[in-house]
């Protein structure tokens, strides 16, 4: 036991140091967003509630990636919350399916003003490849007012950040 411990201590960490993978474009977009939130949106904290209205989960992967150690969107003052009542921004992904139409409307209704709705992904913007399907109501804009649309199938995290920036600027303008 002692020999094992001493070996662990003596050996130390032998993995290679992590390479710096700062995504310069992403950080640039994030800093812009942070500055804009501070300038335009009174508080410097933006709380996001994400709603999957019927997407293929591609957008959700990218949204989840926003919170990981690489993108770390929290450093720009954004955070994800559990209830639409706590949120400033609703991000909606996927074409709105008939099953989720009610849920989306209710979530929009109970988000307190001022609220911003951002459609994330091609499905949410236009209906994407599901457009016109019998199971789909249409794009998000067909159900609730949308402030900004972020195209892409799915959009990259940097695109999402830039889109959020535009959404805020547009909503405040």
């Amino acid at each position: 036991m002692l020999s094992l411990l001493s070996k662990i201590i003596k050996t130390g960490r032998i993995t290679e140091p992590a390479p710096s993978l700062e995504d310069a474009a992403f950080v640039e977009a994030g800093r812009n967003l942070k500055a804009t939130i501070g300038r335009l949106y009174g508080g410097r904290s933006l709380r996001i509630r994400h709603i999957d209205a019927g997407s293929n989960n591609g957008e959700e992967y990218e949204m989840t990636a926003l919170g990981n150690a690489y993108y770390d969107v929290e450093r720009f003052g954004l955070s994800f919350v559990a209830s639409p009542r706590h949120a400033d921004i609703l991000t909606v992904s996927g074409p709105v399916t008939r099953n989720m139409e009610h849920a989306l409307k209710v979530a929009y209704e109970m988000t307190p003003e001022p609220r911003i709705v951002v459609a994330v992904g091609d499905g949410a913007c236009t209906g994407g490849i599901w457009k016109g399907s019998y199971a789909v109501v249409g794009s998000v804009a067909d159900v609730i007012p949308v402030d900004w649309q972020i195209p892409g199938d799915p959009p990259a995290p940097a695109d999402i950040i830039r889109g959020l920036l535009k959404a805020i600027e547009q909503a405040r303008a």
């Binding site: 209830s83 639409p84 009542r85 099953n99 989720m100 009610h102 849920a103 989306l104 209710v106 979530a107 209704e109 109970m110 307190p112 003003e113």
Partner: peptide, 14 residues
């Protein structure tokens, strides 16, 4: 701060 009366948050199922 105004108050708006809504339904209870139901996650999409009434």
């Amino acid at each position: 701060a105004p108050v708006r009366i809504t339904d209870t948050w139901d996650c999409g199922t009434p």
